[in-house]
């Protein structure tokens, strides 16, 4: 077997034995289960007209998915943070990197393993949440697959950044930076939305720069777009300043930049790990 895949399978095996997936999915089942009650109330409320209800359910779902995207992204950062640094500190990696294996294969193997875990979690969360909402309210996002893809990409982005940082910084520092960066990215998106709504070019520029430097908010807005029904998009006049609203699908050049961002950060992580003296 290819050394990269050996490391990837080892990473998955260790995570499964740590019961990481089980823990995340258990918490998600509880939260999603509780949300079922809330969506049911919202969909069948006597105080809302059917039109209002048709708008309220998708908006509530977007808010709920934001919470889940937050959990997903931070989980990605948390599992990636100790992957290199802690194993170097403890000595676990010392016998691995002295085998006939490139350090790039170790790092990419870990990335693949962690990304596979993240993908599994993202799919699990999306399937559960959309199924619950569909059952209790009849609403299904227009493109649930792309929502899942963008949520996964958002988490994978933070995972990749954390892996890069993990080649040089201790796990705790990586974890803190991961949370701070994710928060800053989201805040940058909010600032950009306000700049657009109130036509303040400086704020708009900050938002745009932020989305290029750290595309988490850009990917979150891509997910939002595919969560919104056509009726909600038609109402966009008053929603421009709403940080939980997306005006359009992500542009191809932006998605291309996101792909480049992944590549650049992953190459930087490999270079950093290869240059590090152990």
């Amino acid at each position: 077997m290819n050394p990269t895949l050996i490391i990837a399978s080892l990473t998955i095996k260790e995570a499964v034995r740590r019961r990481l997936l089980l823990a995340f999915l258990s918490i998600t089942v509880v939260v999603v289960g509780l949300s079922a009650w809330g969506f049911d109330r919202l969909a069948h409320s006597q105080s809302l007209t059917s039109g209002e209800s048709n708008l309220a359910v998708p908006q509530a779902l977007i808010l709920f998915m934001f919470m889940l995207s937050f959990v997903l992204a931070l989980s990605a950062s948390a599992i990636a943070a100790p992957s290199i640094s802690s194993e170097l500190e403890s000595g676990v990696l010392m016998t691995v990197v002295t085998r006939p294996i490139r350090r790039s294969e170790v790092l990419i193997g870990k990335w693949l393993g962690l990304a596979a875990l993240l993908a599994g979690y993202a799919v699990g969360v999306c399937v559960l949440q959309f199924a619950v909402v569909r059952i209790v309210s009849g609403f299904l996002p227009p493109n649930p697959v792309l929502v899942c893809v963008y949520l996964f990409a958002e988490g994978a982005l933070l995972l990749t950044l954390s892996l890069l940082l993990s080649t040089r910084l201790p796990a705790i520092a990586v974890g803190v930076i991961g949370v701070a960066v994710f928060g800053a990215g989201w805040l940058g998106g909010v600032v950009g939305s306000l700049g657009t709504a109130f036509n303040i070019s400086a704020l708009r520029t900050i938002g745009q720069i932020g989305r290029f430097l750290l595309p988490t908010d850009g990917l979150w807005h891509a997910a939002i777009y595919y969560l919104q029904p056509a009726s909600l998009i038609a109402e966009d006049g008053g929603s421009r300043q709403n940080p939980f609203y997306a005006q359009g699908a992500p542009a191809w050049p932006y998605l291309l930049w996101v792909a480049c961002w992944f590549l650049i950060v992953l190459i930087a992580a490999v270079a950093s790990f290869e240059r590090r003296e152990l």
Binding site: M1, R17, M94, V96
Partner: peptide, 27 residues
């Protein structure tokens, strides 16, 4: 080359056999 480092730790969640098999695969 076989190497026993001064700071030795192995994957705590694997069995001894699994650790050895892992190194057989890496070799």
């Amino acid at each position: 080359i076989g190497y026993l480092p001064e700071l030795f730790r192995f994957q705590a969640l694997l069995t001894a056999r699994e650790v050895l098999r892992l190194h057989c695969r890496l070799l």
